[in-house]
Design a protein around this nucleic acid. Structure first.
Lengths: 205, 205
DNA sequence: CGAAATTAGGACCGTATGGTCCTAATCGCA
DNA sequence: TGCGATTAGGACCATACGGTCCTAATTTCG
């Protein structure tokens, strides 16, 4: 992957997460990536749409590395991992100072109804995310109550986090996300088997 | 309020909730409301922005009448009301066949970072919504545990619902929302005082 | 009736959009 | 040395955007 390409993708990612896909023009991206002109851009991408798809992919990869990876840490108790993952989402959001939503939630709200190509790709992103959580819940099965529905619980976690990021952005107040994250942990703890010991009690309580 | 005006507002509300504010052009609204031309439109609204504000207001009023009103029903137990309200959100979403998100969540994701005027108005909407839930929780105080934080819980409920609507739209599957709504009720039930009887057990369990 | 509000319809403007095409300079590398 | 990939930069295009202005017909209502 050429350096210029990633430069363009990075600039586009920033712009899209700030203004949305539709409101980000190709000329904006060119300016942001300091390209010489349109032909320079179209040398690397065949259309703005394709750029958008690649940006989404990279955002997910980045999230997979910096967020979802925690869900697979082999040396940590699964439920503790889940709690650390929630912390990581809060931390990632803090980086942008509470501004800027989840890149997935943003694109979802903007394009889910209007653009089938994006909708399908965003759906795939959420599915991969949910699947990671499901695996973790499966692993934590001995500590969980028998009737825990991993599919439903994983969806609930994602929805709560996405909704929390959205509200945090609207209120411009990070403590909104922190509060919801804490409540979400309590909700998860609700599914723990009575006899099972809670991991470290640092994060889930 | 003249009939034409509401006609324009209704057409705009539909278009905006389908394609977002930015992607809805004044010409689209004119077509949708069957106006004769631009001057006809600008006879009623001084700008597209102002139209957007009024649409948002109307969406909230509609939501207040068809949704939030349930939270204030005087003859029903407060927690039961909360449960019925969640059902109402699901029902409202069903009307659009799972498509179309919350008009607030949509605008929030699209404009919260980009347009301060909208951000402030959307924040006010969420605040009024949260305040209704807080009142209800205050009313339900005797049935709730002492340490229930009404501010936090109300935010959690809204975030979960907004996130749920978003995911439902992406997956084009209403059962996602139904599942999250059910889990949300269980989370609320978690805050009920041990001794207190659950209302009808029909909705909260 | 007559004035005011509403409807109708079109011309126009400056700006921005995604995208194409073309020429020429520079670069890495075999 | 020479070839292909990259960089540079500009002209151009059809379309769309929000918004203004103007004229004239029609309706509403005191």
């Amino acid at each position: 992957m050429s350096e210029r390409r990633t430069q363009i993708l990075d600039a586009a990612a920033t712009l899209i997460s700030e203004r949305g896909f539709t409101s980000t023009s190709v000329d904006d991206v060119i300016k942001g990536a300091k390209l010489s002109g349109k032909s320079h851009f179209y040398h690397y991408f065949k259309s703005k749409e394709e750029l958008g798809y690649e940006v989404l992919n990279r955002q997910f990869e980045r999230f997979a590395e910096r967020g979802l990876a925690i869900l697979r840490e082999p040396m940590i108790d699964p439920l503790e991992r889940l709690s650390l993952f929630i912390d990581a989402v809060v931390a990632l959001q803090s980086e942008s100072g509470g501004r800027r939503g989840s890149p997935f939630g943003n694109l979802a709200a903007e394009l889910a109804d209007a653009h089938e190509g994006f909708r399908v790709r965003i759906e795939a992103v959420f599915e991969r995310w949910a699947s990671q959580i499901r695996s973790l819940l499966w692993e934590a099965r001995p500590q969980l109550q028998d009737d825990v529905d991993a599919v439903r619980l994983s969806r609930f976690i994602i929805a709560a986090l996405e909704g929390a990021v959205l509200m945090t952005r609207v209120k411009r107040d990070l403590s909104v996300l922190e509060g919801i994250a804490a409540d979400l942990k309590r909700f998860i703890a609700m599914h723990v088997r009575d006899g099972a010991a809670m991991p470290t009690h640092r994060n889930l309580e």
